[in-house]
């Protein structure tokens, strides 16, 4: 496929998206669906612009993004460090890893009530929820990456008489990098979801509490504006991490198609 044909398809696909938006407007205008539920894109956009002008848009988005990123960073550090420690040691893999597998299928949001009992309806509770939920993909992918280092690389490490620290840093970490980066991306997706859930439960500001309050007040345009912003956050973070992944893994041969 030539790049020109690709561009044509991309444009056509963009046109379809624009057509969908117009269709949405048309449906909203005809009034088949009650205006209470379905504001047209014009009203959603007006709500967005109003919040943008009053400055509320970015403060609330900032709160949500901050919670997502801080919780995710904590989870990344804990997950990668713990995952490396468990993955590098066969002993820890036998004794500790099964317990982690036991906890992993637990829906992360289920610990929200427990976190509330201990921390109250606070910012810290949301951070704990986000960190707890997003630590699992990081932890498990890191364990997987570290325990699947090619035996030949291990032999190289032995021949070169690397100590444990060097072995982790120079051999295992680069080898586990693709797994870890995949975990980081998945973790960030989960972090956004849990930040929103946490905000909905605690009503401590941010986009999550904003859209829930808007629903209680039947302000549909505000909900749609909030959902658009959340979708945008998800889209941007995903694109950014995918780009980072590609950049950091440049040295690897491209996966076969």
């Amino acid at each position: 496929m030539t790049s020109r044909a690709n561009l044509a398809w991309l444009l056509a696909s963009l046109l379809v998206t624009i057509a969908v938006v117009f269709f949405w407007q048309w449906i909203a205008n005809t009034g088949y669906v009650s205006r209470v539920f379905l504001p047209g894109p014009d009203r959603a956009f007006a709500a967005l612009m109003r919040d943008y002008n009053s400055g509320k848009l970015f403060t609330e988005m900032g709160e949500t993004v901050l919670r997502m990123v801080v919780g995710w960073l904590v989870a990344s550090i804990v997950g990668i460090a713990l995952g490396a420690a468990i993955g590098i040691s066969p002993l820890a893999r036998t004794w500790i890893a099964p317990t982690l597998e036991l906890i992993r299928p637990l829906p992360a949001s289920a610990i929200a009530p427990v976190a509330i009992v201990f921390l109250g309806m606070t910012d810290n509770m949301i951070l704990l929820l986000v960190a707890f939920g997003s630590v699992w993909p990081m932890l498990l992918t890191t364990i997987h990456g570290f325990s699947n280092v090619h035996p030949r690389l291990d032999e190289v490490a032995r021949v070169m008489r690397l100590n444990t620290f060097e072995r982790v840093y120079k051999i295992a970490l680069p080898a586990a990098m693709p797994d870890i980066l995949g975990g980081l991306r998945l973790g960030l997706t989960i972090a956004l979801i849990l930040a929103v859930v946490g905000e909905m439960i605690t009503v401590q500001g941010g986009l999550g509490s904003r859209i829930l309050l808007a629903a209680r007040a039947f302000r549909a345009p505000d909900i749609f504006a909030g959902v658009i912003m959340l979708g945008l956050i998800g889209l941007v973070t995903n694109v950014a991490l995918t780009a980072l992944e590609r950049r950091l893994l440049r040295w690897q041969p491209a996966p076969a198609h």
């Binding site: 929103v196 909905m200 549909a220 959902v227 959340l230 889209l235």
Partner: peptide, 26 residues
């Protein structure tokens, strides 16, 4: 699939819980 690509890629990252208030309203 090529025609729908951008529409799908724009809708997909919306966190499912964000739909909650809309579903609640409806």
């Amino acid at each position: 699939s090529r025609l729908a690509r951008i529409t799908v890629e724009v809708l997909r990252p919306v966190p499912a819980v964000a739909i909650l208030p809309i579903a609640l309203l409806v």
